[in-house]
Simulated assay, not measured.
Amino acid sequence: MVTALARPGRELAKQLLVIQLSAVALVAVGMAATVSVNWGISALIGGGIFVVANAVFAWCAFMFSGARAAKKVAVSFYTGEVLKILITVVLFSFVYMYMQVELVPLKLTYLLALGINICAPVLFINNKK
């Protein structure tokens, strides 16, 4: 019963990750086709950083469910948020130090994925009455 309560949230998180990944891939392919392959790769890396960090957060956030596990739910949620921030910082640091990337598509695609995350409630409004 407890896992049944968390199932709709897990499904929404999966849908959001698929939407983000699809948008990042579409933008990366579009930039590779129109501008250059380096722009496409940079766009894929920038969006990928956000999608990977968000996937780790979603995994941590839905690790526990139910009223009896309220403290575990809160701890795993905050742990997921801290891990998301740390993964983002580490991946951006790695990319800046060890890779030759174009900064404009890297940051634009990261911001695109972030914008999808911010606008997610609008995407999933249920108008059934």
Rank of each mutant, 00 (worst) to 15 (best):
T79L: 11
M97T: 13
G80Q: 08
A53C: 11
A70D: 06
L91I: 09
V101G: 01
A74L: 12
F57T: 03
L103T: 00
L123R: 09
T88F: 06
E81L: 15
G115E: 04
K107W: 15
P121C: 10
F124C: 00
F124H: 03
V101E: 06
C60W: 11
T109V: 14
A67F: 00
Y98C: 02
L114G: 10
M97L: 15
A67M: 08
F64A: 10
V101I: 08
L91D: 03
L112V: 02
C119Q: 00
T79Y: 07
K107A: 13
W59D: 13
F64N: 08
C119R: 01
Y110D: 03
F77T: 01
V95E: 02
V56C: 02
Y96A: 11
F94T: 13
V75E: 15
N117R: 09
I85C: 15
L111Q: 06
L114Q: 10
V90C: 09
P105W: 10
T109G: 10
S76W: 03
G115Q: 09
A70Q: 07
T79R: 00
C60N: 14
K84G: 04
G115W: 09
E81G: 02
Y78P: 04
R68G: 15
V101W: 00
V90M: 05
F124Y: 05
I87N: 09
A113W: 05
Y96P: 04
A113L: 06
L123K: 10
V56S: 00
A55T: 12
A55Q: 07
E81D: 00
A67S: 10
E102H: 05
E102G: 03
V95K: 08
L86H: 09
F124I: 01
A61M: 06
S93L: 12
K72H: 07
G66R: 04
R68T: 11
S93I: 11
A113M: 00
